[in-house]
Amino acid sequence: MDMTINVQLLFSGLAMGSIYALIALGIVIIYRAADVVNFAQGELVMLPAFIAVFLLDTMGLPAVAVYPLVIICMGLVGFIFEKVAYYPLRNRSFLPVIISTIGVSIFLKNGAQYVFGALPQVMPRPTDVEVLVLGGVIIDPQYIIIIVSTSLLLVAQHFFFERTMLGKMMQATAQDKDAARLMGIPIARMIAITFIFSTILASVAGLLVGPLFYVTKEMGGMAGLKGFCGAIIGGFGSVTGAILGSVFLGVIEVYLAFYVSSAYRDAFAFIIMILVLLFRPQGILGERIAQKA
């Protein structure tokens, strides 16, 4: 009995951790390319969920068409976001940029409410299977979808950054802007592509997590902050750290909420993060010197 609960918690934790990982990754690649922390990343999770519900329910489009369409839309949002909230402030200190991205997050929240209404909406699930039973353990199939899709996406993005010329040019831009310029790499374009890429990661997270909860304007805010926490716990600035830290956070949060207190569920992420920052500021993995050298 106890065992089955623990296994169920593990799956739910891995699924939430996967979502946090996608968000964290988006935050980290923007940070590395542009030295900016995007406090609106959570809203880039919320928005695609709303668009998907609209296309699926109101427009009645089939799911196969909706998912790519949403991702294309969000790519465009990412592009505009970079031009509005980052580009004009690129030479200023971090404070105006933080406030500006928080301003965008308030804008997106209220924009979504303005366009799609204030009522919570339900996003249809991609499968009709209600529950999966694996060896006596009942598991929500959406968890499996989340975990598998995230893993595939992470493999794909690893391939993109390590094997393609564009990926390597984006890495070069993140590591040393002046040197990248000297090589002839158009860094402004690289940064714009990074924002688009990051927004797409967030929108996949939104499409995956949408069916689990109600789609509301508040659904992304806390998730965005937890993705940030996950990235810090893993070692801020490191891609691997962001993924591992987020998965770790997702799993431990589920267990703590179950065994300790569900009321303080949202506090655990911050408490763990503050402890990590104070006692091991380089994160669990330790930021490799190289990453920001």
Binding site: M165, Q171, Q175, D176, A179, A180, M183, A290, Q291
Partner: peptide, 19 residues
């Protein structure tokens, strides 16, 4: 020097060809 610390040697060299 300003090499790209996170890229391997060969990728660093490849970046030289971008121009």
């Amino acid at each position: 020097r300003h090499i790209f610390p996170g890229l391997n040697v060969e990728d660093n060299l490849l970046m030289g060809t971008v121009s």
